[in-house]
Design a protein around this nucleic acid. Structure first.
Lengths: 176, 176
DNA sequence: GTCTATAGGACGATAGAC
DNA sequence: GTCTATCGTCCTATAGAC
């Protein structure tokens, strides 16, 4: 990644168009317009639409790994950190949330998207299994996280669960 | 629905193509080929691609409502029934699973899909809140169900959770 | 009811000026 | 690096024969 600025701006636009208007509108021209460049300008940075998707997926994996690293180091523990950060990501416009939501909405486009999402889930599961003694609880945390991600993709920032978060986390933690 | 046979066969083909090859390949011609008719034949039953999507979504809502009705009447209780049927649907090729997986993969195409999925989740939540005394547990069940659906869309029939299902359900039920 | 043929439009990608 | 212009392709939808 030699020149981050333009690339990142185009990726931001891509995510935003997918989330706001749906992947159907996420044509090269639509993304370019949102990024403030022309179609030709976009194609200078990403040589094809596949390259654009790859750029988004690479960013997603990086953000997911970074989040897990922070979860591992977190003093409140991986479970509470992961679920709380996921819920926060859903409620606010955190980069990881934008990338993950866009990826889920793009599940259709190509097998690489599903593969990358599986990789993210697997990474989360490995951390949970390693840090939480009980494997069933670990799996439960991953499942609830997946549910939150799907919900974010379906209904955006508003979700009936936001007021019950802490109670929910406490219950899950109590099982460890 | 006067003549179910041809319509249903086309909808089956549509779901299958979306699940197996992705919505990108799910063109009118691809669906028609899988259904054993020509493009013109398909368009006689569904006047447009939008009508085809609508047909899938209507079927999804119907199957979801029927499943919830069965859950309500189930002697083992809504929680156990819902989670077990969701997991079974994920593992095997139950109609509800096929429709739900296809819909999630089609999240991309149009806002109506997200709207319908929200409606399904809302219906599940209403049943859970009505039947389960504790609202936090009700929300947890809906969340875990969503997680299972997303997982089905991502990784198909194989999931590491399948061996831990009953333990997981027992733990959730124990909280009521 | 189901087919073939084709019109009409949109998208991805290339070429070349600046 | 970014632009405009254009080509080729694929898809939806229509028209009309059978």
């Amino acid at each position: 990644m030699p020149k981050p600025s333009a690339r990142e701006r185009i990726l931001d636009a891509y995510e935003q168009v997918v989330i706001d208007q749906g992947p159907g509108v996420a044509t090269l021209e639509g993304v370019a317009a949102r990024a403030g460049v022309s179609k030709g300008g976009l194609l200078y940075h990403f040589g094809s639409k596949d390259a654009l998707v790859d750029g988004l997926l690479e960013r997603l994996v990086r953000l997911n790994d970074e989040d897990l690293e922070q979860a591992r180091r977190s003093p409140e523990g991986v479970v509470r950190y992961y679920l709380r950060s996921t819920i926060t990501d859903v409620a606010e416009n955190v980069p990881l949330n934008r990338a993950m939501t866009a990826a889920i909405l793009l599940l259709s486009t190509e097998p690489r998207v599903a593969e990358t999402l599986r990789r993210c889930t697997t990474a989360v599961r490995e951390v949970m299994v390693a840090e939480v003694d009980d494997p069933v609880t670990a799996e439960l945390v991953v499942l609830v996280g997946d549910g939150l991600w799907l919900r974010a993709a379906m209904e955006g920032k508003e979700s009936p669960i936001l007021g019950q978060v802490d109670t929910l986390i406490s219950r899950i933690e109590a099982q460890i």
